[in-house]
Design a protein around this nucleic acid. Sequence first.
DNA 1: GGCCAACTTTGACGCGCGACATTGATACGG
DNA 2: CCGTATCAATGTCGCGCGTCAAAGTTGGCC
Lengths: 250, 250
Amino acid sequence: MASAMGSLHLDLKDCGNCPIRHRAVCSRCEPDELEVLEDIKYYRSYEAGQPILWSGDHMEFVASIVTGISTLSQTMEDGRTQMVGLLLPSDFIGRPGRETAAFDVVAVTDVTLCCFRRRPFEDLMLKTPHIGQRLLEMTLDELDSAREWMTVLGRKTAREKIASLLMIVARRDASLRKQLPGDGMVFDLPLTREAMSDYLGLTLETVSRQISALRKSGVIQLEGKRRVIVPDLEELIAETGDDVDGGMII
Amino acid sequence: MASAMGSLHLDLKDCGNCPIRHRAVCSRCEPDELEVLEDIKYYRSYEAGQPILWSGDHMEFVASIVTGISTLSQTMEDGRTQMVGLLLPSDFIGRPGRETAAFDVVAVTDVTLCCFRRRPFEDLMLKTPHIGQRLLEMTLDELDSAREWMTVLGRKTAREKIASLLMIVARRDASLRKQLPGDGMVFDLPLTREAMSDYLGLTLETVSRQISALRKSGVIQLEGKRRVIVPDLEELIAETGDDVDGGMII
DNA sequence: GGCCAACTTTGACGCGCGACATTGATACGG
DNA sequence: CCGTATCAATGTCGCGCGTCAAAGTTGGCC
């Protein structure tokens, strides 16, 4: 971990080499604006499974995810939990103008954050419209995603929910490889069955059963618990209940 | 309707008298900035039940809701629909930088919009940081609401969902009257049973049954179909499944 | 290798809520 | 006045998914 951080520091101290340079909240900044950001930024890292923030925590920083995956989730008094966001590299954590975290943030994989102390960042936003513009764009995208997701939660069957999640992961995986999703594609599920159930508003048993059912129907094949093969993409899309390739931002 | 529009025009042509002046996307604008907005704004009105936008429509304008209530919803191929937003006065419709509507927008009550042609509004946003700043703040608030709502959709029982919706309406009603919600409060449901079912991811019948059940338990009383009386607010809050007065933005 | 913890799968059972049908209440127009 | 439309309430039935329980799988560690 320490050595990983060491190399990250070396690679990333310069924003020009940053892997999320073109997508994160800083993506519209000019070189002089980046310099100001570079002065106040610092990195933090978390191991898989560690909490990053608890709901109600005082937030001293806002941050961009540089590498890894985190979840944003809410827990009811009696322990029921619902995931409300899946945070990927370049996604933003925290909210300018808010003192405390509204949701729990947990690292699913090892995670590296590029952090900015909140106050200086808020000041900078007022002086640097490019940051606010990009953050608005990102927030609007997240709102669209959240709304699509509400339809999944409110109206889809368990089988459709699983198929929808598989398509989301498949699309994301394809875009990381700079390919289009297609027949025969292979990808890994970044989430445990329990995390999938939190995402989809199901129990982990139902998730397991529906994945088995999709396998038995031939819609997907499994290699181990996590690796998924999609022989016929159209067939999987049909299982989502969406009209052909419509919907499902993220 | 025509006469109503007439009086609105007279009353509202001047942004200084606008009922949503302090909350809408223009709320941070200085007098000179308002003047520019006044030049490009125009009003439109819709009767209860009318569609304002269909998903996929080309959007020539963005708008603020001045009066009335609209719903934002998504429909699946087979007709299942999920409401993904409840738009109240001062809420914003449309998205700078997007050509087509992503969701259906329908007027629930008679609605008046303050519209801006999209292109000029986008240009203005680049020149007027106050607009973008306010829109960011509003969008972040909506994102928080959407996330709270996801927990309702994914994890609550039908009875808890109904109680949660009643609390949302109760809070909104109290804030309009500039009071705190309290024991014995009375309010009207702005939505039909069907709209409530779309909101909560339930069927209309289940909504009807759960409202009857809450009435029989003495948690609420009904006056007609739409008017609700809450003898003991704590009791209703307990039915939501939330911890005491936590959660439930909007 | 063997042990242990974490994760997953599968089964049995029952309840909550959806699907469908009927009845009632209210409003509107002829 | 009645006929129709809309919205709501309520009954019946059954399936989907949650709950509880147990067994199987995988990987880490000594």
